[in-house]
Amino acid sequence: MYDKKVRRRRAVLALLVVASLLLLTAYFGEANSGALHSVQRGVLTVFAPIQDGASRALKPFRDAISWFGDTLDAKSQRDQLKHEVAQLQQQLVAAKAEAQTHIDLGNLALLDHGSALDQYQPVTARVIVRSPTVWFATIEVDKGSGDGVALDQPVVGDLGLVGRVSQVTSNASQVTLITDHTSGVSAKVLPGANRPATDLRSSTGVVVPSVGDPKNLLLQYVDPSQKVQPGDYVVTAGSTSGPLESLFPPNIPIGQVSRVDAGSGDVGQNIHLKPASDLQALDFVQILTRPHAGLGVRAQVGGP
């Protein structure tokens, strides 16, 4: 009797472990269009309205719990914002002077086209699910292919780049954040408020996450001769050819350089960024459904 019980217990355990390993192996080995991915998307399609409803219904509880933490952070944020306002005022003066120059050159219209997000047909989406593990930096949003969303479209928050669409169903999508370990964004560095615009002419690189530290990004492969400094801005490069081809339109803010360490070996400098958007507190995002809409304008600007 005892032996039978032990055998049964071990058989059930073995069965469950083998089933899990089979699922893991099959899922990891198959393409995005594979059977298990399709089942997963099917389940998401069915449950997205429930998840959306649960997310909305539980929002008051989330807000109430978050209120305590937010209050504690408010004071330090206020001081930081005062400092940033002072910096932005300096920037504004510099930008106004620069804009005047561009008006003189007759290029203001083209610049407006180049920086506006409207041309990329943004679709606003509500965040309904966040992954709780540090290894899957993903969110799910309540807009899908029915709203014009497609794979690999860029996603932006109120202050900068958030990530890209990695799974799509008819009524919901998964967004892989730029802090996910599978993420990489080609980027360029723009001088900070206290530096002349002529600095850093060819400082492009790739922004990758620092796994385990969601408030920190790393900028790699920057030409060591380019001296990047804390306070410099990092934006999407938007290149459409070459080794650093980008999924993202150009000039979307990614973050601000927080620290530059001396690198070792071939790595000239380790550049740390603070993400522009607070990726842990996203409620709404915008999906750019026509990410290459600006190519015509850029060709015009760059052409003869």
């Binding site: 899990s20 699922l23 893991l24 192996t25 593990t133 993903t138």
Partner: peptide, 26 residues
Amino acid sequence: VMGFWMGLMVDTALLQTLGIDSLLYI
């Protein structure tokens, strides 16, 4: 058994790699 099914549900709902949470919850 509860671990297997709950892990499967979590992995499916979060579009994560299927089987990881199941294995750990078992």
